[in-house]
Design a protein around this nucleic acid. Structure first.
Lengths: 171, 171
DNA sequence: ATTTGACAGTTCATTTTTAGAACTGTAAGG
DNA sequence: CCTTACAGTTCTAAAAATGAACTGTCAAAT
C-alpha cells in the first residue's frame, strides 16, 4: 500500500495515519506543540536529516496541519505554525505521551509533567465519552457503520480476499 | 536516528513512537481492536506483506503489547491478543479516529460510528483533565521537567546543537 | 571589502526498509 | 492423492531514509 491510498480508505484512522502516521512527522508535531517554529529549530532538536525535514514540513503544510508564514523579508524566511487542524491533534499527542508515561518509564519516573492552567494541578489526560462523561473502555464501545462506510460493513480497509490469490503455483 | 534509540529518549512520546509509531503497526493495532487475532486475518484485512506482518507482530509481542497464545496443537497455531498494555492504547486509537472523523471525512460522512454501551449513545471521545474534568486545550497546559528529565530541561530529545557542525567546508 | 556565520533549503551517493512474489511445512477434508 | 487453510520464511526489486556536502541570500564582524 502506498501513502496516498491510505488517505482514500473508508476509515478515519487510516486517513489520519496517512497524514501523521510516521515517526518523523509525529516528532515534528511534538516539537510544534513545544513551540518550535523554524527549520533549524526542528532540525537541531530532532536530528532529522534536512532532506526529510523539508519533505515532511511540505507535506504537513499541504495537508493543512501547518501554515507557512513569512517572518522576515530578504532573505525570505518562514515559520511553521499549527493551524486549527494541527492544534486539534493535541489529544493524539497527549494520548501518546500518557501511554509512554504509563508503560515506558524507567525507575527515574516521567520525563515531563503536565500542569493544567485551569485547575493548577499536575494531571493525566483521560479519554471520556462526549455524551455521559464516563472514561472510555474498549470493551464498552460498539462500532457500527456510518454514512461514509463502504458496502461490506465488516471490512473497513483493503479487502484482499476479493482477489483470486493462488497460493501455490498452478503448474 | 534508529528505532531503538527512540525508546531510550527521555520523552514519553518518543518512546511510544518507538513502539507503535509506524503505519503498519498502527493498522495492525486497529485490527486488534476490531477483534482480529490471527495471521491470515491481519494479512487479508490489511494487504500487508506477510514478511512485514510477521516482523511487526514479533515486535509487538516483544514489547508486551500483544500476547501470542496457542489456539491449537498440530500444527501449532497461535493467536495474537492485546495485553493490558495493548488495551491501554485505546485512547490513542480513539484520538486518531476522532481527528480523522473531524478533518478527513468526505461529503458522505463518517465511515464508522461509536456507541457507548454505558449510556447507549453515539459519542465522540473527549480528552479531559484527570483532576478537574475539563476538556484539555493545548494552550492551557504547561509542561515542566519531571523526575526522569535529563539535565538540560528545555531539550527533551537529541541535542545536536552540542556538535561542532561546520556548515561550509573548512578548506 | 572580504570573510564568516545564520538560515532554509537542495542534491546526491549509500544504506536500510518495504513491496511483491514464491516457497516451506503441517495437517485436515474430499 | 490432491487441494486447501494456516503461519510463516526466503528472495529480489523498488522505494525511502541517512549522511554529507552544496547553494544562495543577507547581516555582522574583521
Amino acid at each position: 500500500m502506498k501513502w496516498d491510498e491510505l488517505e482514500e480508505e473508508p476509515c478515519s484512522m487510516a486517513r489520519t495515519i496517512g497524514v501523521i502516521g510516521d515517526r518523523w512527522t509525529l516528532l515534528i508535531l511534538r516539537e510544534c506543540f513545544l513551540r518550535t517554529r523554524r527549520f533549524e529549530g526542528f532540525q537541531s532538536a530532532l536530528g532529522i536529516t534536512r532532506h526529510l525535514l523539508a519533505e515532511r514540513l511540505k507535506k504537513l503544510v499541504r495537508q493543512g496541519v501547518l501554515r507557512r508564514i513569512p517572518y522576515q523579508e530578504s532573505p525570505k524566511r518562514h515559520e511553521y505554525i499549527l493551524t486549527q487542524k494541527g492544534l486539534d491533534l493535541y489529544p493524539i499527542m497527549m494520548a501518546l505521551v500518557h501511554w509512554g508515561d504509563t508503560h515506558m518509564v524507567d525507575e527515574r519516573g516521567r520525563p515531563l509533567l503536565h500542569e493544567h492552567r485551569k485547575c493548577g494541578k499536575t494531571f493525566d489526560p483521560v479519554m471520556v465519552c462526549s455524551e455521559c462523561g464516563e472514561p472510555l473502555l474498549a470493551k464498552e464501545v460498539h462500532v457500527h457503520p456510518g454514512p461514509g462506510a463502504r458496502p461490506a460493513p465488516e471490512r473497513v480497509l483493503l479487502d484482499k480476499k476479493a482477489k483470486p490469490k493462488p497460493r501455490r503455483k498452478a503448474a
